[in-house]
Design a binder for these strands. Structure first.
Length: 336
DNA sequence: CGAGTTTGACCCGCGC
DNA sequence: GCGCGGGTCAAACTCG
């Protein structure tokens, strides 16, 4: 593990280098396809990059900032800022590397995730879809924010938006209601044809690859697990979490890389509509906890910091200026 | 007792 | 049309 990204998966940290399958992955996020283009982007720490974005920092900022998005997308229907949480850290991570991957949240983001998760980081085949709606989804996400992000059917009480009229019908037919709700839920979630292909791409997503011994990294927000599924071609299950905050529909999926079990792949979807419960976050900051040793570290590393080129000195950027085939770099705490 | 987790079932889209 | 895989639900269960 001290190899820092050179272990099994060979990746970790910012993807960089054309030889790395991961590079293809990033390529798959081609902006042309409506997704994001991070190819060849290098952390400022590593000194440079040559991409549509000056740096991932730029990219992320664009992702987080409507203005930036407008710039990137060349239109004013830029999605709203996407805030992804993070902050507190109580994890038991010995080393952390991360890969930031953003996508527009199209249906096929799943493919990306799959690629990340599964053995194959190479999957350009699906890339086209992968990106379909990019952040304009974000624009849609705006609406999502206004509306109850997630519905809860059944006993727990239903959070409803558009279906209120139906709800009026009464609780007598709870079962039926639940069932309908389920169906609706799926549809709302973009599982119906329409949304799947087009509107589904509502929630922007960001995937992180983190070297961690714990699956669920503390990121400053509170999450409730709502499901777990076995992943095909992977011995590790994928867990589904939802932000517990009311009206916050942010979801996250956590799974271990099949290739490198020490790597946890966390995919955030959506925007938090509330501040971090732990209050460790800066507004708009995209943060990933710098977990270590099961205690809170003062030297939390934020993705903002990192990509802004101002990582805490205690973190070592693993990127090599020229890029390395086996994967870019990442963040490695010296204490490891 | 409330909040969170587990887990089997269900639904849907997609590929064949 | 069918089967598969992913995503979600919700009852039951666990934990603090």
């Amino acid at each position: 593990m001290s190899g820092g990204g050179d272990s099994v998966g060979g990746y970790g940290g910012l993807y960089h280098g054309h030889d790395d399958p991961a590079d293809q992955l990033i390529t798959a996020l081609d902006h042309d396809g409506g997704g994001f283009f991070l190819q060849d982007t290098v952390s400022p720490c590593a000194g440079g990059g040559s991409t549509p974005y000056a740096s991932i920092a730029d990219y992320l900022k664009g992702f987080l900032d409507p203005a930036g998005l407008a710039a990137h997308f060349g239109s004013d229907d830029a999605p709203p800022p996407c805030r992804l949480g993070g902050g507190a850290d109580d994890g038991v991570v010995v080393k952390q590397e991360m890969v930031v991957q953003l996508s527009g949240g199209s249906r096929r983001d799943d493919d990306v995730d799959g690629q990340l998760a599964g053995a194959a980081l190479v999957a350009p085949a699906n890339s086209s879809v992968l990106s379909s709606s990019s952040c304009e989804a974000g624009a849609g996400a705006d609406d999502d924010e206004e509306e109850p992000p997630r519905r809860r059917c059944g006993k727990k009480g239903r959070i409803e938006g558009e279906e209120e009229q139906e709800e009026e019908e009464g609780e007598a037919d709870d079962d039926a209601a639940d069932r309908n709700c389920k169906i609706r839920s799926n549809k709302e979630n973009g599982n119906n044809k329409k949304t799947r292909g087009e509107n589904k791409a509502r929630e922007p997503r960001v995937a992180f690859m983190t070297k961690s011994e714990v699956d669920h990294l503390e990121d400053g927000y509170r999450w409730r697990k709502y499901g777990q599924k076995a992943v095909k071609n992977s011995t590790y299950p994928r867990s589904y979490y939802r932000c517990t905050a009311a009206l916050c529909g942010v979801k996250k999926r956590v799974e271990r890389s099949q290739q490198d079990p020490s790597t946890v792949i966390t995919t955030y979807e959506g925007q938090h509509t509330h501040p971090s419960p732990v209050g460790l976050f800066r507004g708009g900051a995209l943060m990933l906890s710098a977990v270590a040793g099961g205690f809170r570290r003062p030297d939390l590393l934020t993705i903002d910091d990192y990509y802004a080129g101002t990582p805490p000195s205690s973190f070592l950027p693993l990127l090599t200026p020229g890029g390395i085939g086996g994967g870019g770099g990442g963040l490695l705490h010296p204490s490891i």
